[in-house]
Simulated assay, not measured.
Amino acid sequence: MLTLAKALATDFDADGIRVNCVAPSIVDTPMPHADLWLTGKGFEGKPFPVHRPEEIAAAAVSPRT
């Protein structure tokens, strides 16, 4: 994904189009809870970063200037 984002950013730079890539760790939604067989306290105390959906949305959307 990073290489694709870099290639697209290079290709579209002349047109003034900016390309970004957001690659979070695990996002705390029902899907990873089911995929990782989590019960009880969920991701609490896990040794990897876990993000809330709002955090990822905030990173993906920037205010217009």
Results as ranks from 00 to 15, higher is better:
Ala58Phe: 07
His51Lys: 11
Ala57Phe: 07
Phe48Asp: 05
Val50Ile: 12
Val22Trp: 00
Asp13Met: 12
Phe48Val: 05
Glu44Trp: 00
Gly45Thr: 09
Gly45Glu: 07
Gly40Ile: 09
Arg64Leu: 15
Ala7Glu: 13
Ala57Asp: 08
Ala7Phe: 12
Val22Cys: 13
Thr10Leu: 14
Pro32Gly: 03
Thr10Gln: 12
His33Lys: 03
Phe43Ile: 02
Thr29Tyr: 01
Thr10Tyr: 12
Pro30Cys: 04
Pro24Val: 05
Asp11Asn: 11
Gly42Thr: 04
His33Gln: 05
Met31Gln: 12
Asp13Ser: 15
Leu36Phe: 13
Ser25Pro: 05
Val22Thr: 11
Ile17Leu: 09
Glu55Tyr: 10
Ser62Phe: 13
Thr65Arg: 14
Pro24Glu: 07
Val22Pro: 03
Ile17Ala: 03
Met31Asn: 06
Pro53His: 04
Asp11Trp: 11
Ala59Asn: 02
Cys21Lys: 00
Lys46Val: 08
Asp15Thr: 04
Ala58Pro: 01
Leu4Ile: 12
Gly42Val: 05
Pro24Asp: 07
Val61His: 08
Val50His: 01
Glu55Ala: 06
Pro53Ser: 08
Ala9Thr: 02
Asp28Arg: 02
Phe12Gln: 13
Ala57Lys: 01
Leu4Thr: 11
Asp35Pro: 00
Asp28Leu: 00
Ala57Pro: 01
Asp13Ile: 13
Val22His: 03
Asn20Arg: 08
Phe43Thr: 00
Ile17Asp: 04
Ala23Cys: 15
Leu8Phe: 09
Ala23Ile: 05
Leu2Asp: 15
Gly45Cys: 07
Lys46Tyr: 10
Trp37Asp: 15
Leu38Cys: 09
Val19Ile: 15
Ser62Arg: 10
Val61Tyr: 11
Thr65Phe: 15
Lys6Glu: 14
Arg64Asp: 06
Val27Met: 03
Asp13Lys: 14
Cys21Thr: 13
Val27Ile: 14
Ala7Cys: 11
Pro30Ala: 13
Asp11Gln: 15
Arg52Phe: 08
Cys21Asn: 12
Lys6Trp: 06
Ala60Gly: 07
Trp37Gln: 14
Gly45Ile: 06
Val50Ala: 00
Asp28Pro: 06
Ala5Ser: 14
His33Val: 08
Lys6Leu: 09
Val50Pro: 00
Pro24Thr: 09
Leu36Arg: 09
Lys46Leu: 05
Ile56Thr: 08
His51Trp: 14
Phe48Ile: 08
Asp11Gly: 02
Ala58Cys: 02
Glu54Arg: 06
Lys41Arg: 11
Leu36Ser: 06
Val22Ala: 13
His51Met: 08
Asp11Phe: 10
Leu4Ala: 12
Cys21Asp: 12
Pro63His: 09
Thr3Asn: 14
Ala57Val: 14
Thr65His: 14
Gly40His: 07
Gly42Ser: 07
Lys46Asn: 01
Phe48Asn: 08
Thr39Cys: 04
Arg18Val: 10
Pro32Cys: 01
Gly45Val: 07
